[in-house]
Design a protein around this nucleic acid. Structure first.
Lengths: 347, 347
DNA sequence: ACCAGGCGTTGGAACGTTCCAATTCCCAGG
DNA sequence: CCTGGGAATTGGAACGTTCCAACGCCTGGT
């Protein structure tokens, strides 16, 4: 028993005043130097068993908790990676995030999470914050940044973009499916079921939406069919409105830009008294888990795997910062469920 | 122009070697002391305009980026709060997280996010990690910790538990709806629609599930009806299996433990060729956004608001660590949609 | 001509670690 | 009895900030 004025276990209140015990305090109580405490706590084998015991006991009694900020400062490593997520509302991103979490935890990293609410300005400031916190890498689960901004960011920290291919930026890797091919899968599937009036409910004006739309258009043309694109968005509301417009134009099948919008489309059809798939077939895109229960056909991507792959890629780049950029393409496949079925022919 | 050996803007590669510029470097280039640079960067008004300009220019040219870890160390503030989320797969938690993010960002905080995958051991180690990172507060979006663990944690950092009321632990506040009353709302609604054979698909063996179950049972008994509880879980699979068991027992209406399970229940009914609400009515619990499109009746909680409320509570407690514990109860209401309707009477 | 006082600026200590170089201690070998 | 050397331990510098006390300088009042 030493130093009556050092705080002791559990006693300090959460808030003001009472300083948390440091290495010094533990050292004083154990009767050794702070260096030895540091060594012991790191599990070094050059600490005498007797000292180790005394140190552990002291640390325990004081409720000592190492200070990572101090440690980070001197080691020049934070063991933290920054994650930016475009939109927490979309379960798809949450599923990717889940994979990311699992992947980085496996490597002993924590995640600092930010959202930009799809606003490039907020996105930039939030990412700046991550950079100031000296994250060792960055994973962007979709973003709205320009290539120039992206290059600046990637120059400061290894970065992985999930959701679309990004080439030609040093220090940056990407993970994505092939949206062109995926959209074609949907079209082929519906044609095989006998549909001809297949419409596309678009995802708005952004990179992924354009890609999927193009894939749809090309596939239609290749089959000698007339593309029909109606405006939508990557939201339930977007899918709802788009589906209405599409059936108004006489479509018997819908290739919807993403799953969320497909759920909205289904609601629109239901509201109109149209049955799925008897009257109108629907195919979504992304492959979120929930769709299984909703019996919705979709172009599925291995979401959690994408997150894990991004984590792996990032770890590799942290280890080898100068290696060339890598794009990891995940496979996209059609998961046929009840929302797509035999067409009853043009009405 | 000074110091030819200092790194210059954009030039340093992301990885090895090249040291990032520090206050010293900026100071050297601007021809002033590091103290003045620090002052200028903090926007102090006691820096001469000429110096300020020179400093800003130098910082810019060097691509200077303040180091938050160093700053945190000396200021004893990290401006970071730790968030633990039980399960990223459940959109409900994501919606709460979204509110949390918004709430803390408004106060200039970042979030360090971890998941424990519903395993108390992982949960503890992940939260330990947060504590070591010296987060200034903790928000637990559901957890599996014991009260003892919780008390230990709350003694180290202000903590808010979302999802159920937690009393009697110093330094800890909570935000939740009234599950007892909520379950009663569901029962009342179904009885008003003429149902009598109302079953409850439970959420398994955990605190919330028990609460909702008890609410259901009491409401049934108060109405002179016989409770019928079938085992389920807070997952689609749980709801699916539970719904099968319930209809086998002749139920015409289902109060399902949460929305995810309700979606599963709907799938089970569909698979059996039962129509909703004509054959069987279904009521979920939680109020996730998606349900609107799915036309599923639910006992709704203001999820994002709960997240924001937790953030506010945490900010208050950080400001006043010693104030008494607060429980913020949010209101729970029935949102009637198509999945619940008039009963056709007992079959 | 001198001094008070404000403004702008500066050096240095501190934050809590890690890690290197140096020191002490002890024992075996000569 | 001395010495060499390994094991155990230690002091101190460093990491990049913040902030305090103190400094020099200029201006204006007397």
């Amino acid at each position: 028993m030493v130093a009556a004025d050092t705080p002791h276990a559990g006693a300090q209140r959460s808030g003001t005043g009472v300083r948390r015990p440091t290495l010094h305090d533990v050292a004083a109580r154990a009767g050794v130097s702070k260096s030895l405490v540091s060594l012991a706590l790191q599990g070094s084998d050059k600490v005498a068993p007797s000292s180790r015991e005394a140190i552990m006991a002291a640390a325990d009694e004081l409720g000592y908790r190492p200070n990572r900020t101090a440690s980070s400062l001197v080691r020049q490593r934070t063991h933290t990676i920054g994650v930016h997520i475009l939109d927490l509302h979309n379960p798809v991103f949450a599923e990717i995030l889940d994979g990311v979490q699992e992947g980085v935890r496996g490597h002993g990293y924590s995640t600092l999470l930010v959202t930009g609410n799809a606003d490039p300005t907020i996105e930039r400031t939030e990412i700046t914050r991550l950079l100031e916190s000296r994250v060792e890498g960055l994973i962007l689960i979709a973003h709205r940044l320009s290539d120039a901004d992206l290059a600046l960011i990637a120059a400061e920290a290894p970065t992985v973009v999930i959701t679309w291919r990004t080439d030609g930026i040093a220090g940056l890797d990407s993970v994505a499916g092939d949206d062109l091919a995926g959209a074609r899968l949907a079209v082929d599937h519906l044609i095989a079921l006998g549909h001809a009036r297949i419409a596309h409910v678009s995802g708005g004006d952004n990179r992924i939406a354009r890609e999927r739309r193009t894939g749809y258009e090309r596939a239609m043309i290749d089959h000698g069919l007339q593309p029909l694109v109606v405006d939508g968005a990557f939201t339930e509301q977007g899918g709802y409105a788009g589906a209405e417009a599409a059936v108004d134009s006489g479509a018997t099948a819908l290739v919807v830009a993403n799953d969320l919008a497909a759920i909205g489309a289904l609601a629109a059809l239901r509201a109109r008294g149209l049955r799925t798939p008897d009257d109108v077939s629907v195919v979504g895109y992304d492959g979120m888990r929930l769709l299984d229960s909703l019996d919705l056909t979709t172009i599925a991507q291995p979401l959690a795997d994408m997150g894990r792959a991004a984590a792996d890629l990032l770890m590799e780049r942290i280890a080898t910062p100068d290696r060339p950029s890598v794009h990891r393409q995940v496979d996209t496949r059609l998961v046929a469920r009840g929302s797509s079925g035999l067409s009853l022919g043009p009405r």
